[in-house]
């Protein structure tokens, strides 16, 4: 498994044929009811939010959505959220907290959208507010890193009690291209950059950030989706039982500790 290089995983993660959030939501959940809009400015299609049943239990689903074709991608802005996407997630998370619904987030984004309007409407503030709120939200949160997790734009939906990551997904502070171009002013050195970034699921598990790696079929995730999906379902089921058993202050203390301990030596 580990002989696949970091860069190869980046290309697998970005393969257009790889299942997207909209493909796996109906496989993981029943009766998904989409809820749109941030109630302030608009609706961001790069973030799909709604309520669904997970094996009979109502849950709130917040998924970053990439498309497969150019048309699809135009609609969802290639999975890059504007502030209203983060604020929509926050709105629905607050609603989930009110009704004590667990939250399942799906991360798949190259990063928050770097645009003029995004800055004007407070991209930084929107991300910061999510980090702050999710850190102590009074309901269990599980994050699934589906394919690509890029920088603060991904982190804003990854503050969770459990973080799962698909075996061939990547998660990093910025893209290998960006990293290479900033460090060496040479964006062709992406393979080296990918290694240095330590962006694979195994790297993140070693660092204690990822709790569980979602195995992908030897035939490729896209060729045997149900293999991964049934394993995720088992894991969510088990984790929800464990998380629901905790008293609220234990749940919040453990989540705080999960992030508090990252790089805590001086």
């Amino acid at each position: 498994m580990n002989q696949i290089s970091a860069w190869e995983r980046v290309t697998i993660a970005r393969n257009p044929n790889r299942p997207k959030s909209l493909d796996i939501i109906p496989l993981l959940f029943d009766h998904f009811f989409e809820c749109a809009g941030d109630r302030h400015y608009g609706d961001d299609k790069a973030l799909i939010g709604g309520i669904a049943f997970f094996e009979g239990t109502p849950v709130t689903v917040l998924a970053q959505s990439k498309g497969r074709t150019l048309d699809e991608n135009m609609k969802c802005n290639f999975g890059m959220l504007h502030p209203e996407g983060y604020r929509k997630a926050l709105r629905l998370a607050q609603q989930a907290e009110k009704f004590k619904r667990p939250i399942i987030t799906i991360v798949d984004t190259a990063g928050a959208y770097p645009g003029q309007m995004a800055e004007e409407r407070g991209q930084a503030e929107a991300i910061a507010k999510n980090l702050q709120f999710f850190s102590q939200i009074k309901t269990p949160v599980i994050t699934i890193v589906l394919s690509e997790g890029g920088s603060g734009g991904a982190l804003a939906l990854s503050v969770a009690d459990r973080i799962y990551m698909f075996e061939n997904a990547v998660y990093s502070i910025l893209s290998p291209e960006g990293f290479a171009s900033i460090l060496w002013k040479d964006d062709s050195r992406v393979k080296e950059a990918a290694e240095l970034l330590e962006c694979t699921s195994y790297d993140l598990q070693n660092k204690g950030i990822v709790d569980w790696i979602v195995p992908e079929s030897n035939k490729g995730f896209e060729n045997d989706i149900s293999y991964s999906i049934s394993l995720i379902k088992d894991q969510i089921r088990n984790d929800l039982v464990k998380l629901n058993k905790l008293k609220l202050n234990q749940l919040l203390d453990l989540r705080y500790e999960k992030f508090r301990k990252i790089g805590s030596k001086l």
Binding site: A128, L131, Q132, F133, S135, Q136, S151, G152, L155, S158, V159, Y171, S172, I173, L174, F179, I182, L183, L196, L197, E198, C199, D203, L204, K207, I209, R255, Y256, F259, R260, I262, G263
Partner: peptide, 26 residues
């Protein structure tokens, strides 16, 4: 911003500091 040379560990500092602030806030 976050320090690139420390990679994902730098990124996670955003979550850590925000979590501490939320406890202070509450």
């Amino acid at each position: 911003g976050a320090r690139m040379q420390e990679g994902i560990m730098s990124l996670m500092q955003m979550a850590k500091t925000s979590a501490a602030l939320e406890r202070f806030n509450q």
